[in-house]
Design a protein around this nucleic acid. Structure first.
Lengths: 215, 215
DNA sequence: TATTTTTTCACCCGATTGAGGTATGGAAAA
DNA sequence: TTTTCCATACCTCAATCGGGTGAAAAAATA
């Protein structure tokens, strides 16, 4: 069956262009085109797409907000962001909103078709420039300092589990309940975790857990 | 002038395959092939490449460690990681090490050539699966959740300062000393921070501080 | 099989923390 | 000018936490 694509794009010319590209490609059908995201719930029900081609710059509701809504309410639908902008903030927001791909409007029709197929199959097409920005942002926010090889902490699976629960904000009693073990046992595990992590408090442990991505 | 590529790959067959692909492509020249990363400094000086094709799985020194060294000592050289592995840890480490691209060994020769051109021109080629893993990891580690607008925490500068000290692992007495205020005052601030952040413990506060980028 | 590691539980002690309240001076905003 | 917010400081009380010791199953490993 064809991949059903819904297009959200305020510019009439581009909207029609995308529609033509989709319908002109075997295996892809444009099930609906919209010029804004008003009443998006109703629009999505009507279009029932596999892939959404989403413009960022739109009146009333921008594509990023719309993406957030779609990710929440239609988690199976893949969202392919399309924009003229290349700035980090937009890229960052779109990705955090849960977009599956991010391509520039300068992308060729052939590449657009490729991208639609890729998102549909679980991949994440990105324009080369976007991809490099994503990696840069990733390196910037990476919670680890890659140099320190010495610090490798080996926690047992139970210890990792308990550390995770600590990061989630549980106190020791709550951890005991959720793990179905006694409070004293939790305390024993926690003490061992502290020893292994070379810390002396829950706060330090969770900070280290996050920064060293132990959880 | 041709793009000069240096190949680091322990498997003889693949090594020769890559070399043939590079030299068989107009605009690309393989300036050297190596079966390990020993004495990498000398090897790099000899090869003087624009792009390094780096295998992750190698004896003596793995490709990620080598990547770290290259990024530090040859910052202009683009590194294209190539591997059979798809696991998140490897991807994560390679990107943090500073790789410019990450492709699977199952990638076609045509796509490999494309990728070499893309990294050379500042892009970041990634296999679709890798790209989607990167986005997932990105979302996981994204320091802000821009969606929840309700949750914007306005801390006074003093409160932020104290929260930072908490994140650094100081206990309340240490914070008092470092801030030149009394222990009890620190406690008052901390209580207010808890209220504002809707948390009930130091651990929760530091987790929220890190995740919401408050410090 | 024997040995080590992991997981489990218990008790003690002293220090720390969290929650509640009260209060004062100053700065900023209304 | 009054009010609100911020920073400062102190008090009490109960609960929790960190450190230490000890020990016994269970599981993994040699």
């Amino acid at each position: 069956m064809d991949i059903k694509v819904a297009i959200f794009e305020d510019n009439k010319l581009m909207r029609e262009g995308y529609e033509a590209i989709c319908n002109g490609t075997p295996g892809i059908t444009c099930s609906a085109v919209f010029h804004d995201c008003m009443d998006i719930d109703h629009k999505m029900r009507k279009a029932d797409p596999h892939v959404v081609l989403m413009d960022i710059e739109m009146p009333e509701m921008n594509g990023i907000t719309a993406t957030r809504i779609l990710v929440k309410d239609w988690p199976e639908v893949k969202i392919l962001i399309q924009t003229v902008f290349e700035d980090d903030d937009k890229i960052f927001d779109a990705i955090c909103a849960g977009a599956s791909g991010y391509i520039l409007k300068s992308t060729s029709p052939a590449r657009l078709v490729e991208a639609i197929n890729e998102v549909y199959n679980g991949g994440s097409p990105m324009s080369p420039y976007i991809a490099s920005r994503v990696l840069k942002l990733f390196q910037k926010f990476a919670p680890v300092i890659p140099g320190d090889e010495e610090e490798k902490f080996v926690l047992s699976s139970r210890e990792k589990e308990i550390l995770s629960l600590m990061v989630e904000g549980n106190n020791l009693h709550a951890i005991a309940d959720k793990s179905f073990i006694s409070y004293e046992t939790v305390r024993t595990h926690v003490k061992r975790i502290y020893k292994k992590l070379h810390v002396a408090s829950a706060s330090e442990a969770v900070v280290k857990a996050i920064r060293q991505r132990l959880v």
